[in-house]
Design a protein around this nucleic acid. Sequence first.
RNA 1: GCUGUUCGUUAUAUAAUCGCGUAGUGUGGGAACAUUAUGAGGAAAGUCCGGGCAUCACAGAGCAGGGUAGCUGAUAACAUCAGCCGAGGGCGACCUUAGGGCAAGUGCAACAGAGAUAUACCGCAGCGGCUUUCAGCGGCUGUAAGGGUGGAAAGGCGAGGCAAGAGCUCACCGGAAUUCGGGAGACCGGAUUGCCAUGUAAACCCUAUCCGAUGCAACGCCGAUUGGUACGGGGAAUAAUGUGUCUGCUCGACGCACCCCGUUUAAGGCGGCUGGACUCUUUUGGCGACGAAAGAGCUAGAUAGAUGAUUAUACACGACAGAACCCGGCUUAUCGACGGACAGCAUUU
RNA 2: UGGGAUAUCGCCAAGCGGUAAGGCAAGGGACUUUGACUCCCUCAUGCGCAGGUUCAAAUCCUGCUAUCCCAA
Length: 120
Amino acid sequence: MSEYKKRYVVIKSNRDFSYLFKKGESVVTYGFICYVKPRRAGKNRLGIVTGKKVGNAVKRNRARRIIREAFRLTDPIIKEKLTGRYDFVFVARSKTPSLKTGQIMSLIEKSVLPKIMNLG
RNA sequence: GCUGUUCGUUAUAUAAUCGCGUAGUGUGGGAACAUUAUGAGGAAAGUCCGGGCAUCACAGAGCAGGGUAGCUGAUAACAUCAGCCGAGGGCGACCUUAGGGCAAGUGCAACAGAGAUAUACCGCAGCGGCUUUCAGCGGCUGUAAGGGUGGAAAGGCGAGGCAAGAGCUCACCGGAAUUCGGGAGACCGGAUUGCCAUGUAAACCCUAUCCGAUGCAACGCCGAUUGGUACGGGGAAUAAUGUGUCUGCUCGACGCACCCCGUUUAAGGCGGCUGGACUCUUUUGGCGACGAAAGAGCUAGAUAGAUGAUUAUACACGACAGAACCCGGCUUAUCGACGGACAGCAUUU
RNA sequence: UGGGAUAUCGCCAAGCGGUAAGGCAAGGGACUUUGACUCCCUCAUGCGCAGGUUCAAAUCCUGCUAUCCCAA
């Protein structure tokens, strides 16, 4: 699970999550809530939060998979447009399991990317 | 054909592209890459029972505490399952059933009612008395049939009997004791005696029987700085005292206290981890649960947590729902589809 | 993942087999010129849901549902 193999790295520690929730820029859509924060070096990092409110274990798994797949597909686009590296935390909402990956992708492109561009 | 009862099976499929976990093989110094195989359930869920496995004194004793409660069997074990018995429900197939003991002791039974485990209010009778007449008043004695209350009034119901009544006597029914027969047993059937016990143990309790505690975040191994603690070994002491662990208490057991020597905990990683009371097929024993033999097979093992996405086609348009140490059950959720057996009713032959 | 607790009126709650105390809030009335304070009256059709035991269940038993806590 080193950083060479994957295009992105998973955020694990509770400390990183709470840091992003406090200091990161938030983007709210009907599919998810996203927190972004620039990073100095390394790879892009991804964290997904699926709370109890999303549903039972099947729905939480589905939400996680959809977001991960959408991020995987949009990752090259992010790298083309942006030079810097970022931390992302996606929080799933109760609608998320009923959505499709394409919808999440378009949401990321439309809402999240401009926000990051503004950050510089 | 309609209405049911019951037992099973199944749980979208196919193709293409991109992507993920594990294992094998190959290339490579390594990171990694390529390729092949494989990758959630009938309930994986709830965590309600039982067992394996691991550690704690190798698993102690007594009391306390908790579980179970018709019988026989199945099983590693069980509160599970099978067959049977009793009770209840259904025309029936069939279904439901915590189903030991209030005759060891204690408790509780509100309100109502005269009276709640014994009683006598209204009554029903007999005796004698007073007021004196077609009756009334109070007294003594007998009684529990009738009245009303209640969930329950001391067996039920009918006949005899009697002053009136009463298991007072008798027949039938219910229950009890003794006894005979049948059965592996629960229990069933018969005979005799005799006239009798309110309900409640999912109240305390008694009887029989079972249970040590903690749970893979158990447990074992590796592990940097710093600090101090913990662990191991040896010695002294083993009289007393204090204290820790073994379940709550009592006993009992093993330590600790003083000295010397050695090692080391905590982030994290690896093991435990999946080959097992396993799966399938055939034969076979048993009414059945289940067992035996032979052959074949290997079928998830993640660690912020792998099964997804997109497109196309088909139809019944896809429910409930995601392994986390492993098994056996129970309970709960569930769109539907298919099959077997059986019952009742109607019609036809 | 494992272990434990709770659920009673809109809110806080008592109740340990005999038919749901109390306070706050709400509604009505009295007092007052009016308001507040104070006083009186009203307010649970069953105690999270479904079964069972019992003459009788919020209470006892069983199974579910929801919420909360602990270990990490």
